[in-house]
Structure formats: C-alpha cells, structure tokens
C-alpha cells in the first residue's frame, strides 16, 4: 500500500478470524486509519490483495462493497452523521438504506439506544450530543445491522477515561457475542484495560510493517 508517493506498508499479511479481538496501534501517521480503510474497502491497495469475506476487493463492484459494508460496522475517529436527522434515525440509517422496514425494527432500535445509554437522547440532533454521546451513537449505528466485524478508529480519542471505559465495555460485550473486533488506538491504558477482560491481540504498525506486539503491554 502506498500513499502520497511513498510506500506506507509492505509485506503485511493478516487474516482476522471470526470472533477475534484485535488492537491496532502505532505512532500517529503510521497508517492505522489507512489500514482500517483498506479493511472496509474505502481504499484499494496499490499492490497485494485484500479479501472481504472471501471476495477479492479488486474484483468487487461498488455494489458488492456496499453489501459487504452492511456486514462491517465502522466507528470513525471523527464520527459523521446526517446532521438534519435525529439520533434515532441516524442510528437506524443502515437499516433504512438497506431497505429494512424500520417499524419492525423499532424494538431493536429502542434496546440498542438503551444499551449505549442514549434512550433519552433519541430525538436530539447529532450536533446537540457530547463527544462521548456521539461515539456511542456511532457504535450503535455500527452494530444495528448485527455485523460480523466491527472496526473502530480511535473510538476513545475525544472522550474522557470513564466514557472510554464504558465504550470499551460495549465492544467487549459485542466480542463475547461472537463479533470480530478491531480497534485502532494509541491509548495503552485502554489496551491494558481490555486485556484484563478479553483475549485481545495487539498489532503494531511501525516502519511500514505490521508486527505482533509483545506481552509487555
């Protein structure tokens, strides 16, 4: 994968096995976000192959990528919502665009909002949410389709420790339900906190290589 002229990674080979929990770490600018974007087909590798659910990204049509994304929940670093729609609609967005009947999923949506602690904010506009609330709303949106994989890019970047603990808790619960989780973060405390609860593997991007980090973390 090269980016802006220079090669960003080389010789990376990784398969996320179902139900695994990975942290992706490394210095700023090492390419964590780029790596995640490759994982959900937002970028194409300049060399090598990426397979989403067994299909080569290069041979997938735009619609194939769209369908694959319904099986991948993404929580972005800077979460983007449809600012003119209330939180409940934003969380339900993946259902809406995939043609699900929202009314039949109303109960599901209510429970999900309760789970991320946003029941009382369902009718608020995204702009009215705090940083932590936005991150949790983004997580709710990422999981409403019950995806197999959840990719989170610095999900705790803008929120306090207590809130990030809570967010981590939600991700750990999802992992226990069998979801594959990949979190890009440089927050070592978060990784340590997670390791006490789940079998998490830590991947480190440095010097254009992906390494399995040692146990010292």
């Amino acid at each position: 994968m090269s980016y802006g002229g220079g090669e960003l990674f080389g010789d990376i080979s990784l398969t996320l096995s179902p139900g695994s929990f990975h942290f992706l770490t490394g210095p700023s600018g090492a390419g964590k976000t780029t790596f995640l974007k490759l994982c959900y087909g937002a970028l194409l590798p300049t060399a090598g192959h990426i397979r989403l659910f067994g299909a080569d990204l290069r041979t997938m049509s735009r619609d194939d990528v769209a369908l694959a994304r319904r099986r991948i929940g993404v929580v972005h670093q800077d979460v983007q919502f449809l600012e003119h729609l209330p939180v409940a609609d934003n969380v339900a967005l993946p259902l809406i665009v995939s043609g699900h009947d929202r009314n039949s999923e109303a109960e599901n949506l209510r429970e999900l909002l309760k789970w991320v602690g946003l029941s009382h904010r369902a009718d608020a506009l995204p702009a009215e949410l705090s940083g932590g609330e936005r991150q949790r709303a983004a997580l709710a949106r990422a999981v409403i389709m019950s995806p197999e994989v959840i990719l989170a890019d610095e999900p705790t970047g803008n929120i306090d420790w207590e809130m990030s603990q809570r967010l981590l808790q939600l991700l750990v619960e999802l992992n226990r339900m069998g979801k594959t989780i990949m979190i890009a973060t440089h927050d070592m405390n978060l990784i340590r906190a997670a390791k006490s609860q789940v079998q998490a593997r830590v991947l480190r991007i440095s010097q254009r290589r992906l390494q399995t980090a040692g146990a010292d973390l």
């Binding site: 619609d63 769209a66 694959a68 994304r69 983007q80 967005l93 993946p94 949106r141």
Partner: peptide, 16 residues
C-alpha cells in the same frame, strides 16, 4: 458530500 459519504459508509448502494 458529507451525507453521501455517510450513506456510503453504512452500506447504501449507489443506486439508492
């Protein structure tokens, strides 16, 4: 553009 990016991210097809 932002709306379109969000829709793409959550799995909306181009036709939609």
């Amino acid at each position: 553009a932002q709306v379109i990016a969000v829709l793409r991210l959550v799995g909306a097809r181009d036709a939609y």
